[in-house]
């Protein structure tokens, strides 16, 4: 059980996780303090949150201990570009839906950028495939299931 990085003597990811767990426990405790309604009988709505907060706190302490003795498994270097493309696509998807651009455009964007993240270069082709896929899905939902996916200017022409 020797630290992988004896120069520093502690593992930063484990420390970060410990910090996040303490923060989560803190949020739960803060929320408990804002509860006003209690149960007339039995245990109230704050009992379970206390258990959760204690559990999270203990797990945070355990992570602290781990941080100074060995740390978490070391991840391999990630391909940041690929991840960025995909996350960019997901953010674009939410943005387009949120701004009322409609499902088809959003799907085209996310399809193309995920494909790009996995190494494809033919952006135009992928956009077209994504748009086609989105259109088919939209129509199937609207016509067969009578469920309306988010509609933008493009979709309004169809229904």
């Amino acid at each position: 059980m020797t630290p992988d990085n004896p120069a520093r003597g502690f593992d930063i990811p484990a420390l970060v996780v410990a910090g996040l767990l303490f923060a989560a426990a803190g949020i739960v405790l803060y929320d408990i303090s804002r509860q006003t309604i209690v149960s007339t009988y039995g245990v109230g709505p704050t009992a379970m949150p206390y258990v959760v907060a204690c559990g999270l706190g203990l797990l945070g302490l355990a992570h602290l201990a781990v941080a100074f003795r060995g740390g978490l498994p070391k991840p391999e270097a990630a391909d940041g570009g690929a991840v960025a493309w995909i996350i960019g696509g997901l953010v674009a998807f939410v943005a387009v839906i949120g701004l009322g651009g409609g499902f088809v455009i959003a799907t085209a964007l996310v399809f193309a950028s995920v494909a790009r993240g996995f190494g494809r270069r033919a952006l135009a082709v992928d956009l077209a495939i994504g748009a086609g896929l989105g259109l088919v899905i939209f129509l199937v939902f609207a016509k067969l299931l009578t469920l309306l996916l988010p509609a933008g200017p493009l979709e309004r022409l169809l229904v």
Binding site: G89, A115, L147, L148
Partner: peptide, 26 residues
């Protein structure tokens, strides 16, 4: 593979949107 994963993502969003069409849920 690129299309497979892109398709999986589209598929995942579709199910979420059909039940609750809200950007917050996405």
């Amino acid at each position: 593979q690129p299309w497979l994963y892109a398709g999986i993502i589209v598929f995942a969003t579709m199910g979420t949107l059909a039940v609750n069409p809200s950007p917050v849920e996405l």
